[in-house]
């Protein structure tokens, strides 16, 4: 059985029905790519899946229970990594501190050496202690994406435009990591404006723009 199910979701924003009757299951080892024009409701759908937005109709189920239930929401949170438009990187703190804060918030005991290794993989060598406000947009994005390496218990990734501001090498690195995660049984649902380069297997869900 799939863990995350969207059942008959309807979303109304600004008194306009963005989408209605959207249902799908997110299967293990699966990558779902949400596509659709700007304003079709991709971000809203992802935010409904995380529980930030309550759908106007329909339910999101985690292991058979609705995520509006607080116990289920917390159980879901333990196995979820969400990276949204806003990267949740504080410009006053360094890359290292931002990673530490996130790990502590998620109750992960990640030793600093692991964090250093991940930041090295992401090409942030020597920038670990620089306040993120002084880093470029792409480097900030990399700090945010470092979270994909820390949470070993995660089984679902929800990624909203993860490739924004990344260079070619960065995109390749993230795609490779996504492939590895799916191969290990994880499920990913994401949006992207860029076509995927190295990933060949995915399922498309298209949201149509409606007036």
């Amino acid at each position: 059985m799939s863990q995350l199910q969207a059942i008959d979701l309807t979303c109304i924003r600004r008194d306009r029905a963005l989408f209605s009757g959207v249902s799908f299951d997110l299967e293990p080892s699966e990558l779902v790519l949400l596509s659709g024009l700007n304003g079709a409701g991709k971000t809203s759908l992802l935010r409904i899946l995380t529980g930030f937005i309550r759908p106007d109709e329909g339910r999101v189920m985690w292991q058979g229970e609705s995520i509006t239930n607080d116990i289920t929401r917390r159980a879901f949170a333990q196995q979820l990594v969400y990276i949204g438009h806003k990267s949740a990187v504080n410009p006053l703190a360094s890359a290292l501190e931002n990673c530490v804060y996130w790990c502590e918030q998620q109750q992960l005991t990640t030793p600093p050496s692991v964090i250093f290794d991940v930041l090295t993989t992401l090409g942030l060598v020597g920038l670990e202690d620089v306040p993120c406000g002084q880093l470029s947009a792409g480097q900030n994005r990399r700090v945010a994406l470092a979270r994909l390496w820390f949470k070993q218990s995660a089984t679902v990734w929800i990624l909203d435009e993860p490739f924004t501001a990344l260079d070619v090498a960065g995109i390749a690195l993230i795609e490779q990591h996504i492939t590895a995660f799916c191969a290990g049984g994880g499920s990913v649902i994401m949006t992207s404006h860029q076509p995927l380069v190295s990933i060949t297997q995915w399922r498309d869900i298209t949201l149509e723009y409606r007036i």
Binding site: T50, Q78, G84, A88, N90, Q105
Partner: peptide, 16 residues
């Protein structure tokens, strides 16, 4: 700040 940077979203997704 936490709203603009998106930290409140991450808080909403922690087991607390």
């Amino acid at each position: 700040d936490d709203f603009q940077h998106g930290w409140l979203e991450q808080l909403a997704l922690s087991d607390a």
